[in-house]
């Protein structure tokens, strides 16, 4: 087959689309759904700028076919804010100044959220290891790690409050 119809949920919204089978998930998000928050960097899985979560798992969307997304849940940076409020990790990025040029930020946020789901109380060393697939060419890594630590404290506080 050269085209395929997929039913996929992106940021909690169902999309039914017929697409060419050689379309990457990255192209599908940006060019078909016009969700341009997800960035293209290297287009070969090295930089992590295109990271999104598929069923909760971080993937380089440049190396995933949109055709594989039938029945899957995709989360992009556009889906992080809820009811007009930024995700705690987005807030932390703003507060500590973890954003310089911003190109890596969407991928950093998604990788960071996947990591916090797996390790709610990460050490700095764990953050370095888990975030290894996301490159920041402004080299603002220290503040990105600071932001993740800050968000982890706040998210832990929220859980305790419930």
């Amino acid at each position: 087959m050269q085209n395929i119809t997929i039913h996929t949920i992106v940021n909690n919204e169902l999309y039914i689309r017929t697409i060419p089978v050689n379309m990457t998930l990255l192209q599908f998000l940006r060019e078909d759904l016009h969700l341009t928050g997800t960035k293209e960097g290297c287009d070969e899985g090295e930089c992590g700028a295109c990271t999104v979560l598929v069923d909760g798992h971080p993937m380089n969307s440049c190396l995933v076919l949109a055709a594989e997304m039938d029945g899957k849940h995709v989360l992009t940076v556009e889906g992080l804010a809820e009811d007009g409020r930024l995700h705690p990790l987005q807030e932390a990025f703003l507060e500590v100044g973890a954003v310089q040029c911003g190109y890596c930020t969407p991928g950093m946020l998604l990788s960071g959220i996947a990591m916090l789901n797996l390790y709610p109380h990460p050490t700095r060393e764990q953050i370095r290891k888990e975030m290894e697939g996301n490159i920041c060419r402004c080299t603002g890594y220290e503040r990105i790690a600071d932001a993740i630590l800050l968000a982890s404290e706040r998210l832990a506080g929220e859980t305790e409050a419930h």
């Binding site: 992590g48 995933v64 290894e132």
Partner: peptide
């Protein structure tokens, strides 16, 4: 191997 994203796939 690679990164978390690569190892996941």
């Amino acid at each position: 191997v690679g990164s978390v994203q690569i190892r996941t796939r």
